[in-house]
Design a protein around this nucleic acid. Structure first.
Lengths: 343, 343
DNA sequence: CTGAAAGCGCTTACAG
DNA sequence: CTGAAAGCGCTTACAG
């Protein structure tokens, strides 16, 4: 038999036991001015009962709830834990709480929940251009920070990595290795990361090697989709000698698809990812990738939100964080004669 | 400039606009008896304002908050998302909300938070025998469900996989392949899963092949610890021909450690895991493992909690779910002559 | 079926 | 420095 529910003590009971008014208890709790002796007595009773204030009551009367919504759509992407931890850490230091919104609920349901909870603000990690949740949330006057993926003209603070720069690094790396038949595995169409990485990659190719062939396939930032797409690509007539993937999850899918098709990496195919999630450094994976400062991006996002709550009228901020190429085992010099035409 | 905060409408405003008492609004919201015409009128005003009740106010007056704590210590283990999703799904269907507790906070801080939030119940996924959080939470009269890891004699409902059975399947598989020098990479000492898997493995060996050598090393359910331990084991004088790992994360670490040491898997070393997380089926990993019904375990846990909230006095339940061996590429017949003595 | 009232546990002016 | 009081937005008996 489980234990019987034990009722919580309220500040009224604390006050009675300490022989003071309830408002005095509230004052010692929230740092109002209280005589040392009174404070001591109240603290004693507080400690005796291990008093914990009822957050619902506090939220009801205060203007704020101390709750911050964090929207993470794809829980299966391994950079998710990295981001959540970083955000959680910052919020936790400030005594704020985190309400996690995943894709279990629809956008409408999530909006309703954020409003019912009266969250003080929301951090989005996976917004798309016409985001069905970010826009309505903002229109309801709830402060929004876009983290990792951004939206031009959005009325909220934003942080992201230098995605175009990341794509340029990837392009340079593959070009330097002599690859001239390239493939690009693209992320979700409306995601800024995918758009910037695609544009950056294309721009760099046009700049350095306008003659290269580039075949783009859609992977939707999703393992299963990417896996199928890459198998098809590798089995088809336009097999590239190198593949730039818009994130690591898709790169992992590509690696596994190559294994399934009997295509040797990096012997017959070079693969570059983007993110550098923990899995990518595994010996069995050893993915060459462009590292984003994932934890840092999330941390900055949390801080931007905190500052926004302090000063709602401050001008909008937009931070862009640097990236860096991490060479590992999935890329190598092109073995075929450089030039046009598929093998 | 972000949008200005838009104040929420309250049920009092709705009542005024609909020309009824506030309690009537409350009744149409919560399904009390209301005349059809009155109801229609109220619903109209509700819809017009897209009214969302203030959950803090509701929690304050109702006996329950609708909040369920979910404790997940190791966010980096990839079965975490699988479990969270399953729990979230069930809670969401019932209109309950999830408060995620990770390891960012200490046990004391987590306890305080659960109490301040007045959660209706808590699901633990990573309890240990003398758990610093599960016991205090239960002693405070908050219903607890132990999910995945269990504690004998704990006053709460429990769900787990057949861990001893899992270990027996692993032992049989390795024994059938002719392995006689075995290694076991163990999980956290106080975790039921590690204890049961260790005991089950040992029992099965004693039963079928009392002559086998078994060397146990501690991996603490942690990638980094396991990686270092396995490298040391493989480089040392007692290298086993097969390794049973208490979970997949440790098995992945073992695979990568083997790669780092130049030990061929499965040629020189067979590896069996336990869990079957998504990563394990990747071609690059192809881990032979014992599958636990991860989502099912979490789902049952959520349901047990819901039933407990319905009937706090019902007798405690303890569910054990079946497991299954999944043979992939990391195990093979032992190439060395079976017998004693290291190579 | 419906309204007036009490009360959940707090914070915040407002007096003294 | 401290107490009495109002009020946050709801639900729940209690009358009619």
């Amino acid at each position: 038999m489980p234990m019987a529910r034990r009722p919580s003590v309220s500040s009224v009971q604390i006050a009675r036991e300490a022989g003071v008014a309830q408002s005095t208890v509230s004052r010692v709790l929230n740092g109002g001015s209280v005589a040392p002796e009174t404070r001591r007595r109240v603290l004693e009773v507080l400690a005796k009962h291990d008093y914990q204030p009822n957050l619902a009551a506090r939220s009801l009367v205060a203007a704020r709830t101390g709750l911050v919504g964090v929207v993470i759509r794809d829980l299966t992407n391994p950079f998710y834990p990295v981001m959540v931890r970083a955000v959680e850490q910052v919020l936790h230091e400030q005594g704020l709480r985190l309400l996690l919104l995943s894709d279990v609920a629809t956008a409408a349901e999530s909006l309703a929940m954020l409003r019912r909870e009266r969250v003080d603000g929301v951090v989005f990690t996976s917004a798309v251009r016409e985001d069905p949740l970010a826009w309505p949330v903002s229109e309801h006057g709830i402060p929004v920070v876009l983290c990792h993926r951004t939206i031009e003209g959005f009325p909220g603070d934003q942080v992201e990595a230098d995605n175009a720069g990341a794509a340029r690094l990837a392009a340079d790396h593959l070009l330097d290795l002599g690859h001239r038949r390239l493939g690009m595995l693209c992320g979700t169409a409306q995601a800024s990361t995918a758009e910037q990485r695609a544009a950056g990659f294309r721009a760099r190719l046009a700049e350095r090697a306008p003659e290269v062939e580039l075949v783009s396939v859609q992977g939707g930032y999703d393992y299963a989709t990417s896996y199928a797409a890459v198998r098809e690509l590798l089995a088809g007539p336009h097999r590239p000698s190198a593949l730039f993937c818009h994130n690591d999850v898709m790169a992992h899918a590509a690696l596994n698809a190559a294994a399934a098709e009997g295509v040797d990496v990096p012997g017959e195919l070079s693969v570059v990812g983007c993110d550098d999630v923990p899995t990518s450094s595994w010996e069995r994976i050893a993915l060459t990738t462009v590292r984003q400062p994932l934890a840092r991006i999330a941390e900055v996002a949390a801080r931007l939100l905190l500052e926004r709550l302090q000063d709602p009228q401050a001008p909008l901020r937009h931070e862009v964080l640097p990236v860096q190429l991490v060479e590992r085992g999935t890329t190598a010099a092109c073995r075929q004669v450089p030039g046009r035409g598929a093998g």
